[in-house]
């Protein structure tokens, strides 16, 4: 299995990356690549046929980590394994390593990046849902300069983002959580490490007054509830939430989602370790 022929460029800085993406033709045939853990399979299956790959994995801008009082700006090319191993600072009380640990498999985590996951915008991926729940902001750079936006505004739909032609994700800013913040995360996968069929992330940070709930794996943009205190206190509102979002159609999927959301909310009450995430099927057992 061979990808269709493509050209490869590894620019040294952001400006060169933008130029390399733009001059490959107006038809948008150039694609940025970082870890290549989603794009690679698509290339091999010839589902994606870019005329040029622009390697952004080593751009200094995308490898930096800037820690501030309000949070941490992670370069887009920080890998899942670096989050998992605690090789980068964590503005949350342990949420990031926990989520990273549950992404695909270690061999994938060693190469896959947080920015790549966002840019790919697979609805069933872990970072888009998690980062939306944490209230993270995406930093972009392109021909028109730099801009930033909340994750939920960045992801427009399944595999669709707000990225303009020639634009790349430079980083993700994750606000600092209070030490007592809680994070409930559940996903249901047919097989460990596979893409989820239902997922939910809930942040409850009472000290900051932030309560957010995000339903992922919706086959569209994630469903984000920014004022979720009421829902957390009374999960009976889940049915209504799903129906209003147009996710009430298929009864089986509806019940699966309801169970996963309920579990994620319930998980807020008990601290979870990475290993307790392991039997993801268990959380949706009837």
């Amino acid at each position: 299995m061979k990808p269709a022929r493509f050209d490869y460029a590894r620019p040294v800085d952001l400006a060169a990356a933008t130029a390399a993406l733009m001059d490959a033709g107006a038809n948008g045939a150039a694609k940025p690549i970082a870890g290549g853990q989603s794009l690679g399979p698509m290339l091999n299956l010839r589902l994606a046929r870019p005329s040029r790959l622009v390697d952004v994995a080593r751009l200094p801008d995308l490898r930096r980590v800037e820690e501030g009082a309000g949070g941490v700006l992670f370069g887009a090319a920080i890998t899942h394994a670096e989050f998992e191993d605690g090789a980068v600072p964590d503005p949350t009380p342990g949420f990031l390593p926990r989520i990273a640990h549950g992404i695909a498999y270690r061999a994938v985590r060693n190469r896959g990046t947080i920015g790549g996951s966002l840019a790919h915008a697979d609805p069933a991926a872990d970072w888009p849902t998690t980062l939306a729940a944490l209230g993270a902001r995406v930093h972009l750079a392109g021909p028109a300069g730099r801009r930033e936006m909340p994750v939920e505004a960045f992801i427009l739909g399944a595999f669709e983002t707000a990225l303009a032609p020639g634009e790349i994700i430079t980083g993700v800013f994750i606000p600092r959580c209070a030490a007592g913040a809680r994070f409930g995360y559940r996903k249901s996968c047919r097989k460990l490490g596979e893409f989820a069929e239902a997922m939910c992330a809930v942040l409850s940070d009472r000290a900051r007054g932030v309560h957010r709930l995000v339903v992922g794996a919706t086959e569209a943009r994630p469903l984000v509830v920014t004022e979720a205190a009421g829902l957390i206190a009374d999960p009976a509102g889940i049915d209504d939430l799903l129906c209003r979002a147009g996710l009430g159609g298929d009864p089986a999927t509806f019940r699966l989602r309801r169970a996963v959301i309920g579990d994620a909310i319930a998980a807020l009450a008990r601290e979870t370790t990475p290993e307790s995430l392991t039997p993801s099927m268990k959380s949706v057992a009837p």
């Binding site: 290549g36 690679g40 399979p41 061999a107």
Partner: peptide, 16 residues
Amino acid sequence: LVDGAPARSCIAYPVA
């Protein structure tokens, strides 16, 4: 192993 860590060689490209 790529730089000591496991990686899938079917979706890694030597050029990168």
